[in-house]
Each structure stands twice: as structure tokens, then as C-alpha cells.
């Protein structure tokens, strides 16, 4: 394990605290006969920015889907924010509002407007009033830079804009961390880069971000890199992240 912090500008260094948000202990997961996760040990601290990479089928998506119980692990312990994931439904509900999830195919709800997409969870899960939910949703939509599109339907937005909405939607429940499963998989290079700027910004403001990707390009934006292979966690690396905002300005990719 190597630790390189030389040359990292302070602005994008994660404000990592000692507080552990996620702790995995000897986690194993099988799909039928297929052994997808093998003895995974991992702890994620508050404020970290992590990229998990590896070839497809290596278990990286499975891992983060286990973290908010979209998949069930069979052996080992997963502790999210002090709550152990087991069959207790109450625990699962608590964890799901603590963990925001962003998907490769956005998965916005096409029959609801952008704003309605973002107020659904606060209103129905957190029992917030409509006004309160809308205010906070607007604040987040402004932060992801799409406040003008709030009354449109997801189908009327571009891929990059949809993913921004999805991130805002993941943030509305005020989660402790955000899990992103191949968030740039359906986006072009420039849009991906813009999204990375957004993730870095969020992280700078204290959000823990875990991004799963198989694109090596994306990996360099993280301060900590986890590499998966055939269900094993083979590498856990601290690195000097590239500042996505600077790169975006420097590369001047065609809009």
C-alpha cells in the first residue's frame, strides 16, 4: 500500500475524519453457485472519496449493492453508520435513507417531474412537508446546476443532466454517503468529467463518495482507489487525485 500525497492541491484533498461510516468484516456473497465476493474487509471513513474499479464481474457493483441491501450478503458483517445489516427490516430502512444511490442508467422516474423526483423520498420516507421538501430539493438542484429544468420530465433532459438530477435525488434525504454505480457509464467524456467535478465538489463539502467504475480515466480523480478482481479486494491505494475542475478547464474539450 503506498501513500502519495505529494503535489496534491489542498482544495481537493478529502477532509477525512476518523469516523468510520462503513465497516465490512469478512463479507461473502454468492449468486447461486457463483462466489461473487470473497472475504472482503474494508472500512470507509467519513469524508473519503473512493473509486472502486475492476473488470466486469469482479464484484465491485455487487459490493456497493450490498451496502444498502439491494443485494443480500450471506456471510460476514456489514456495518453502516453503526447499524449492522441483517434481516431486520427496520435497520434496512434506516440505512437506505443514510445511503444515497446513483445508477448507471439514472433510473429517474419518467412519470414525475425533476422536482417531484427529488421530493418523493423526503415526503414519503421522511414525512417532510411538501414545502420543506421542495425548498431543500431546489437548493440541491441549484447545487448540481440545473435549477431551470425542475418542471421538466426526465425524458426531456440530456444524459448528463439526468445524472445530475439523480445525484440531487440521492442527496435529498441528507445521506451520510453517496454510492454511485458506474455513474458515467452512459455519458460522453466531457459530461463524465463535469460529473467528476460535481463529485469532487460534494466531497469537499464533506460528503463521503464511493464511485464504482471500470473506466481507468475515472479512477485518477479519487484519493483512495480500491481494485477488485474475481471477487477479491486486491489493492487498496491512497493516491494523489487529479483535480477534475482544472482538467476540465485545461483540456478544453469541445462542448
Amino acid at each position: 500500500m503506498s501513500l502519495q500525497t505529494n503535489g496534491t492541491p489542498d482544495s481537493i484533498r478529502s477532509a477525512v475524519s476518523d469516523e468510520v461510516v462503513i465497516a465490512l468484516n469478512q463479507v461473502n456473497k454468492w449468486y447461486g453457485e457463483f462466489h461473487a465476493l470473497k472475504d472482503i474487509d474494508l472500512s470507509v471513513h467519513k469524508g473519503e472519496r473512493i473509486v472502486i474499479c475492476g473488470p466486469s464481474g469482479s464484484g465491485k457493483s455487487t459490493l456497493i449493492r450490498c451496502l444498502n441491501r439491494l443485494e443480500e450478503h450471506q456471510r460476514g458483517d456489514i456495518v453502516v453508520n453503526g447499524v449492522t445489516l441483517d434481516t431486520n427490516l427496520k435497520n434496512i430502512d434506516a440505512i437506505r435513507s443514510d445511503v444515497g444511490m446513483v445508477f448507471q442508467s439514472f433510473n429517474l422516474f419518467p412519470h414525475l417531474t425533476v422536482l417531484e423526483n427529488c421530493t418523493l423520498a423526503p415526503i414519503w420516507v421522511k414525512s417532510k412537508s411538501k414545502r420543506e421538501a421542495e425548498e431543500y430539493a431546489m437548493e440541491l438542484l441549484t447545487r448540481v446546476k440545473i435549477p431551470e429544468q425542475v418542471d421538466k420530465y426526465p425524458g426531456q433532459l440530456s444524459g448528463g443532466q439526468q445524472q445530475r438530477v439523480a445525484i440531487a435525488r440521492a442527496l435529498v434525504t441528507r445521506p451520510l454517503l453517496i454510492l454511485a454505480d458506474e455513474p458515467t457509464g452512459a455519458l460522453d467524456t466531457r459530461t463524465s468529467l463535469e460529473l467528476m467535478v460535481l463529485f469532487q465538489d460534494l466531497n469537499r463539502q464533506g460528503m463521503t463518495v464511493v464511485v464504482v467504475t471500470h473506466e481507468s480515466d475515472i479512477a485518477r480523480f479519487a484519493a483512495r482507489l480500491l481494485r477488485f478482481r474475481d471477487g477479491h479486494l486486491v489493492e487498496d491505494l491512497q493516491q494523489a487525485p487529479v483535480d477534475a475542475a482544472k482538467l476540465l478547464a485545461a483540456e478544453a474539450l469541445p462542448a
Partner: peptide
């Protein structure tokens, strides 16, 4: 209705009946 819709609703913390009533059934 794609699996992603169910997953997004689930990941959000909606209960089974909420995700059926608010997300899946309307579509």
C-alpha cells in the same frame, strides 16, 4: 417496468406499497 425503477425506489427507502403505488403502478 425496468428493474432499475424498482431498485431506485427501493434504494430511496420507499416501502413495497409506496414504490408500487407511487412509482410502478402509475407507469
Amino acid at each position: 417496468i425496468s428493474k432499475g425503477q424498482y431498485e431506485a425506489a427501493e434504494a430511496m427507502g420507499l416501502s413495497y406499497w409506496q414504490s408500487m403505488g407511487l412509482i410502478v403502478m402509475p407507469q
